[in-house]
Simulated assay, not measured.
Amino acid sequence: MKIKEVRELETKDLAEKIEAEVAKYNQMKLNHAISPLANPSEIKVTRRNIARMKSELRQRELNK
């Protein structure tokens, strides 16, 4: 998810998307520990997407 796409989301939708991505990330980590994923770089991509979304959410909080 690009930063442009993150900025287009509403604050409420962004918070929900973060929760969904964190759940997906935790599930991916668990699955990878049990049996290796076909593409383990997806874990890194998901983690970075979460960071982008959290950064944008924090920036919105500071700009209020």
Rank of each mutant, 00 (worst) to 15 (best):
L30W: 12
L9Q: 06
R58Y: 11
I18V: 04
K17C: 11
R52V: 01
Y25M: 04
E61S: 08
Y25D: 01
A15F: 11
E10D: 13
K17N: 12
S41C: 13
A51I: 05
I50F: 00
M1I: 10
S55T: 11
I50H: 00
K44F: 13
A23S: 13
N39P: 07
K12W: 13
E16D: 13
I50Y: 00
Q59T: 06
S35V: 10
N26C: 09
E19W: 07
E42F: 05
L14K: 04
R52Q: 03
S55P: 00
T11N: 15
R60S: 05
S55G: 12
A38E: 11
I50C: 00
E56H: 01
L9C: 06
E42C: 01
K17A: 13
M28A: 02
I50Q: 00
K12N: 15
Q27P: 00
L9V: 02
E19F: 12
A23M: 08
V22F: 03
K2G: 14
R58N: 04
K2W: 11
H32K: 04
K24Q: 05
H32N: 09
E21I: 04
M53G: 02
L9G: 01
I43E: 03
A51S: 10
R58M: 10
V22P: 04
R7K: 15
E61K: 07
A51N: 11
L9P: 00
K29M: 11
A38M: 06
A23V: 08
L9N: 02
S35K: 15
L62I: 01
I3P: 04
R58D: 06
A33L: 12
E61Q: 09
K64L: 10
R7D: 12
T46M: 07
R7C: 14
E5I: 09
V6P: 00
I18S: 02
M28Y: 03
N39E: 10
I50V: 01
N39S: 09
E8Y: 10
P40F: 02
N39L: 08
E16L: 12
I43H: 02
R47H: 07
R47W: 08
V45K: 15
P40L: 02
K29Q: 15
K24E: 05
I18H: 02
